[in-house]
Design a protein around this nucleic acid. Structure first.
Lengths: 249, 249
DNA sequence: ATTTCATCACTGGTCCTACCAGTTATTTGG
DNA sequence: CCAAATAACTGGTAGGACCAGTGATGAAAT
């Protein structure tokens, strides 16, 4: 582990945060006791306590005297349908909540970008857009992200940028990144490219309303596509279950 | 100091946070050293460190090895994966960035509420609305908040609720709460009440678009009013300066 | 056998002391 | 007078000791 110069307590706080975001530590779950962590990670209890306080400050964990520390249930709904199916898409409900908000904010970002983009912004957006055209499918996710990021930047609202970034992070944590990248299926990619073109031209030609509508339609389309894929995969799983429940070999 | 049951470290963290929010500790200013605080507050250094780590987790302070701890001025770092909450408690300009985003999301909340509100939601919204009518000016801010909160709840999107709550918190940190409460000036209050009525009736009668427009107009109006007040106060200050710079006596 | 209560083995909360590691002002040696 | 050693800060880490809640275990009283 490269120590660099960052304090161990921060490193541990970050480590635990990752475990929580990865889902290794689930909401409401008890975190190992301070003394356990201290021994397991080979650091003093003081360090563990400092790390836990940092996470506490972030509202990620909650500590109760005599009981232990617990992962805070942040956005999760108490509604637990623990079907096998729901285990795979357990975060689906929240995922679409994220999409719903993101749709609105991407729309606003596009609208404001059309109004406020200066020359530099327009250059960066154009650059990001052109880069996407030369579709190296592997880097598609990055490029897509860069494009939307450039638009958000052009809106010149740090709050908007921050929230959109956070939403994207949360979405990545909800599902596999590969799932979010729809470009590997041509029928989706075509529509996405079309939307991107619409957004791009609307912003460059300063058509705020159009840009907004196009951006919103874009997010809506991605969301719908994910729902569709989800259904398909469910039926695949169901087929697999039927198969395996029939007398095997 | 009533110990109650809350940990001393948290109490101290809260105390320091207050000092910072009050402006007693200014941004970029150095916080007394851990050993100083330890002695001054009569607690062990460990406690101080835990408190500081908590503030650090909140992004309120920043600690540099060998130098000390400093009040963070603002955090616009793009790469900060964190709770949506911790952005900054910035000054002037960012307040209107917050308003800009909030306008959009309040609009969406109203729209969704009109679509999704069930009986219970409608009851709660109605209750909050009626409570506002009986305007006890002192509790006006609370009631206003409760009304908007009820609408957000009716939208049935936890992400939206969370972000709106965070934005409100940030706005309260940006300016004095009393400034945000415009009800003490009749010309503002009338317009606000009118907007509230529009929003209320639109949601109850399930007119999504109207509700959205009304909500957005409402936020816009509050934002504009603040801008106006800001200008007035500036001119008052300027007048005061002119006065004092003219030969006194 | 059931209930009650004391005890004990956990948990986190606080304090302490010592020491390491950066930073900076001071002092010292050339 | 300047540069290098140093002293006096700062935060970072370690580990021991003890206090204070919590919950389970088990013994004693019913």
């Amino acid at each position: 582990m490269q120590n660099g110069s960052i304090p161990i307590s921060q490193a541990i706080a970050h480590h635990l945060e990752q475990l929580i975001l990865d889902g290794t530590l689930m909401p409401e779950q008890k975190i190992p006791s301070e003394r356990q962590l201290s021994e397991k990670l080979g650091v003093s209890r003081s360090i563990i306590r400092e790390a836990l306080h940092e996470l506490q400050g972030r509202g990620i964990i909650e500590t109760r005297h005599g009981k232990g520390s617990f992962v805070c249930s942040m956005v999760a709904e108490p509604e637990q349908e623990s079907t096998l199916m729901q285990l795979f898409f357990g975060h689906s409900r929240t995922l679409y909540d994220l999409f719903e908000v993101r749709q609105q904010l991407e729309g606003q970002a596009a609208y404001l970008a059309a109004q406020r983009a200066n020359e530099k912004d327009q250059y960066l957006i154009t650059k990001a857009f052109n880069a996407m055209e030369q579709a190296d499918p592997l880097k598609n996710a990055e490029l897509d992200h860069a494009f939307h990021r450039a638009i958000a930047e052009a809106a010149h609202n740090p709050v908007l940028i921050h929230i959109l970034t956070s939403l994207k992070q949360l979405m990545l944590h909800s599902v596999q990144a590969s799932v979010l990248n729809l470009s590997h299926r041509k029928e989706f990619k075509q529509q996405i490219d079309k939307h991107h073109r619409q957004i791009f031209h609307a912003i460059i030609s300063r058509q705020g309303e159009w840009a907004q509508k196009a951006a919103m339609a874009h997010v809506q389309h991605v969301s719908d596509s994910l729902r569709q894929i989800e259904k398909e995969e469910q039926s695949i799983i169901r087929a697999a279950i039927d198969e395996s429940s029939s007398p095997a070999g």
